[in-house]
Computed example of a mutant assay.
Amino acid sequence: MALLLKVPSIVCTGCGDTITKAIQTVESDASIKVDIAAKTVTVEAKASEESIKQAVVATGHTIEGE
Rank of each mutant, 00 (worst) to 15 (best):
I36E: 08
V34C: 04
V11N: 12
C15A: 03
T62G: 11
I52K: 08
L5K: 08
I63L: 05
A58G: 09
D17R: 15
V43A: 05
L5H: 06
T25W: 00
C15V: 04
T59H: 03
D17K: 15
V34Y: 06
T13F: 08
I23A: 11
S31A: 15
T42Y: 06
A22Q: 10
A22R: 11
I19W: 03
I23L: 12
A37V: 12
K53L: 05
K53A: 15
V7Q: 12
K33Q: 15
A58N: 12
Q24P: 01
A37G: 12
D29F: 05
T18G: 02
D29E: 10
L5C: 04
Q54I: 01
V7W: 09
V41F: 01
S28W: 09
K53W: 00
E50F: 07
G65C: 06
G65N: 09
A22C: 07
V11W: 07
K46S: 15
E50H: 12
K39I: 07
V11A: 13
V43S: 10
H61A: 08
L3T: 08
G65L: 07
K39Q: 14
V34W: 07
V43E: 01
T59K: 00
D17P: 00
C15E: 08
I63K: 09
E50T: 14
K53Y: 03
E64S: 13
V41H: 08
H61V: 01
T42R: 13
T42P: 00
A58H: 11
A45R: 02
E66W: 08
T59P: 03
G14P: 01
S51D: 15
G16I: 02
T62Q: 14
T42H: 06
K53Q: 15
V57I: 15
A58I: 05
A55L: 04
D35C: 04
K21H: 13
H61P: 07
E27R: 06
I23Y: 09
V57H: 05
G65T: 06
C12Q: 04
K46Y: 10
I10R: 09
T59Y: 03
V41E: 00
P8V: 02
D29C: 02
V7N: 14
S31L: 10
A55Y: 08
T62H: 08
K53V: 03
S28V: 10
K21M: 09
V56Q: 05
T18I: 10
C15T: 02
G14N: 15
G16P: 10
G14F: 10
V34P: 04
I36Q: 02
I19M: 01
V43G: 07
K33I: 14
G65A: 05
G14S: 15
V11Y: 06
V11H: 13
